[in-house]
Design a binder for these strands. Sequence first.
DNA 1: GTGAAAGCGCTAACAG
DNA 2: CTGTTAGCGCTTTCAC
Lengths: 344, 344
Amino acid sequence: MATMKEIAALSGVSVATVSHVLSGKKSVSPSTRERVLQSIGLTNYKLNTIAKSLRMNKTHIIGVLVEDICGLPVPEIVDGINQCLEESGYQVLLSNLRLLQKLYNQYEQLSQYTGIVNRGLQLLEDARVDGIIYVAMHDRRIDGIHQPVSIPLVYAYAESGDPANVSVTYDNENSAYEMTRLLIRQNHRQVALIAGHANTSAANRRLTGYRQAMDEAGLPVPPEYIRWGDWEYHSGVEQAGALLALALPPTAIFAMNDPMAAGCYAAIKRSGLRIPEDISVVGFDNREIASCLFPGLTTVALPNKEIGHTAAQQLLQRLDGLTIATPRTTLPCRIIRRDSTLPR
Amino acid sequence: MATMKEIAALSGVSVATVSHVLSGKKSVSPSTRERVLQSIGLTNYKLNTIAKSLRMNKTHIIGVLVEDICGLPVPEIVDGINQCLEESGYQVLLSNLRLLQKLYNQYEQLSQYTGIVNRGLQLLEDARVDGIIYVAMHDRRIDGIHQPVSIPLVYAYAESGDPANVSVTYDNENSAYEMTRLLIRQNHRQVALIAGHANTSAANRRLTGYRQAMDEAGLPVPPEYIRWGDWEYHSGVEQAGALLALALPPTAIFAMNDPMAAGCYAAIKRSGLRIPEDISVVGFDNREIASCLFPGLTTVALPNKEIGHTAAQQLLQRLDGLTIATPRTTLPCRIIRRDSTLPR
DNA sequence: GTGAAAGCGCTAACAG
DNA sequence: CTGTTAGCGCTTTCAC
């Protein structure tokens, strides 16, 4: 791979001149420019970005620190980041914490967790990235993360505990509210909820949205209508079974994610009832299952790509020296209507 | 961020000495080493990897070129790569071609495709990565990709057309063979197949495996038992419907992926038959649906992480100057037995 | 308009 | 054992 020096020699000019024609920042006579360009065409010259980075103290690389690339929303978020960065000539250095295997999903045990994160952050800083995007795999508040000294850090799919830090996430509460509203507008009065793990913020926010819609509509929420699952298929089966065994079973079940909704399908099928004629079911997340169940599951789609895109955009802005007016962005979700509900 | 020069000044030695204590390649007197280490502790010194890369002409960065990060097997493959690289101090520069959005899955139209790939490859080479892993999203033979001049390239989840190139993929044919065998061992004699797109190599290889098992067992394969779908849920519904309408309907259906198997579930349910009592169904890919259907779907799990890990391992070997004895690795899959089949 | 020279932070001969 | 020196390939004053 040829260097500027060789191009310079080949065209009988100095390296400075070659640099000038390449950068275009300084005017060069048309004739020499032509000569230089020709030499470049003749050889396999490639600008050495490493040397340039060293000189400029800027790598044009963004560090993307993901909790786990296999986390459900993560690939789409990264894709959104890529889409944004692609247009602006930045590249992505990916650091995959692999939390799913390292902490077996028990990663709320902060001590270990923050250690791993801060080490990942450090590695990225050592690589001299220009900025960092932290991509979470569960929507929540994040604390205890070491703020890099000299480069910006933005959070995607989670909120930093410090409200001054910029974070981009989605609207859990309102989405659950809207979904519950949809059911209520279809004249359902007995709407039960199958929640995720009680200690996750997503579950609590979605619960708040559900409650608000029910309250507003003046509908009662008997305690036995709130069932706590664990986000997994089997808890959906179980809790839906319990719901169906009630003296006054619900006419609609809102499962807080699609696998648990799929569990409802199994329990309901087993009980001999039909979806949606006898009972309506809705989910959350719009995973692949939602369209592969029969009947198709009405659910809510998260704005994952937009989260990534927006996070990258805001990072780029900070790199340009701008300050983000509203550091916390909450993007809306979209309800995907399929065939799992029917008005009463 | 402090530099070696500052550390040297602070400890009253030369930068060379600082470098020596840091690298450990040359012996340094305990007293000076101690002094240098102390200075480092006092400041926020960080080795500048950019400068080191420039000097050494080696970045310790692997370029990972993915066709689309949202492609189903891709995150797991990348995870496998990360797992391997994590242990050896390499970092990953991720280049996401985003083919799903750019080519709308019509990416077999080679002209555009190879242009995009080669551009991505170029970007990675320009960044001076030490090696490249190409991660495909559909198992197939890949041709027309420009071989980088001075760095190794290995293929994951696909085979290079040139048998000299190293590629790591999985055993489509044998997996389909084994799955069909499983059905046959359960005394199924009428085993129908719902294939994916006829022009995909995965579909053809899986077909070959199925045929071989049927032939070996002396079972006939009437042409109406081979149905061509398009990998999507709806084609599963449709083709299973056609199968059930046959004069002699199959007792088992092998769908070439899980969404099509889910489609079978819908068609079978609609026809009033039961899985697995009346008819057995199996899928392929072990997607999330497989465990969220009722009854749980027996399917085959792909060794995605292993593919990534092995690819990275082989790349690292080539970086160490070793040559790979058998450039083409084909990893076995694993059948996941659930509740969607029953012996006759 | 062009080029000489300095230097980004580091490593590796080579001398002493 | 320690330091001097020469660069890796590039950008950028600053003269000419």
